[in-house]
């Protein structure tokens, strides 16, 4: 009896939090289904009086959606995959290996987090400009091929894994790479999966970097494409909310598919004594 009351209370809490967090998105999706002329109105209404998919049709018609989508996929997935590999390698070294200067080097990694990107953007732009890299995928991806945040995050998780693990493996003559690839990485799957989602969404949504680094419509990403609907004086809210709903969908899918790894951590906890 007590247990089921507790259960009910848990669900009530979960639902309340979900409602509070999701409400703005419900508003966004419903707004995207209103005719443009109905969005700015008093008294405000949550539901459209006239349901329409026109905004979605307009998004499709007025920007080369597939091209922008492809660029977003190449950019965001490219950064995510490469960065996951490099971040986890560095994190492994910081968490599981002994070498001189480790602490100092790690502080240096933290420092990389502390300078706002807004100021390094221009020196970086000048440098890439000098190299003739502007307007290429390489310029979009390579500078982001590793990420101090990712190194820091994975290091924290790798440190938490039991020490006995690698000692045993090393005595068995296991190489460091195998130790990293076959033992440590699989054990940290929840952390790696969440970092993958973070990298993906950060780059997928980024507006300023792709805009600065590319100079042509052919290289533009989805957020830059949606920004075309945001005029200096006039914003087309319906189209913009429709575009945002479409642009967010792949990330929701990525999150849902990463979720199955999140829970997997539990299965391995038996290892830790």
């Amino acid at each position: 009896m007590r247990l089921s009351v507790w259960r009910a209370a848990q669900y009530a809490l979960l639902l309340a939090a979900a409602a509070a967090i999701a409400f703005p998105f419900i508003w966004m999706v419903l707004t995207s289904l209103k005719p443009e002329g109905e969005i700015v109105r008093f008294p405000p209404a949550l539901f459209p009086s006239d349901w329409t998919l026109d905004a979605y049709v307009q998004v499709w018609k007025r920007i080369p959606f597939l091209l922008f989508f492809k660029n977003s996929v190449v950019f965001a997935c490219g950064v995510t995959l490469i960065s996951l590999a490099f971040d986890s390698m560095a994190a492994y070294a910081f968490a599981r290996l002994a070498f001189p200067g480790k602490h100092a080097l790690f502080v240096l990694v933290l420092i990389a987090l502390m300078i706002p990107v807004q100021v390094t953007m221009i020196p970086l732009f000048i440098m890439l400009n000098d190299w003739g890299w502007i307007d290429t995928y390489a310029a979009l991806i390579v500078p982001r091929a590793t990420n101090a945040f990712g190194i820091f995050m994975l290091r924290q998780f790798f440190v938490g894994l039991p020490k006995e693990l690698d000692e045993a493996a090393r005595i068995d003559g296991c190489s460091e790479f195998r130790l990293y690839w076959q033992i440590v990485l699989p054990l940290a799957k929840p952390a790696v999966a969440s970092l993958a989602v973070f990298h993906l969404m950060y780059n997928w949504n980024d507006l300023l970097w792709p805009l600065i680094i590319t100079n042509s419509q052919e290289m533009r990403t989805l957020p830059a494409g949606l920004a075309l609907f945001m005029g200096q004086h006039v914003v087309e809210y319906g189209i913009l909310t429709a575009g945002a709903a479409i642009a967010t969908a792949p990330l929701v899918a990525a999150f849902l598919s990463a979720q199955k790894y999140f829970v997997q951590g539990v299965a391995f906890t038996g290892l830790k004594e």
């Binding site: 979960l14 939090a17 979900a18 967090i21 999701a22 703005p24 998105f25 966004m28 989602v197 969404m201 997928w204 949504n205 507006l207 957020p223 949606l226 920004a227 945001m230 913009l240 909310t241 945002a244 642009a247 967010t248 990330l251 929701v252 999150f255 849902l256 979720q259 999140f262």
Partner: peptide, 15 residues
């Protein structure tokens, strides 16, 4: 539920 809680994280600031 987790997906819902994560929704604000994956949406861009512009929107």
């Amino acid at each position: 539920f987790k997906a819902i809680y994560f929704l604000p994280v994956i949406s861009s600031f512009a929107i």
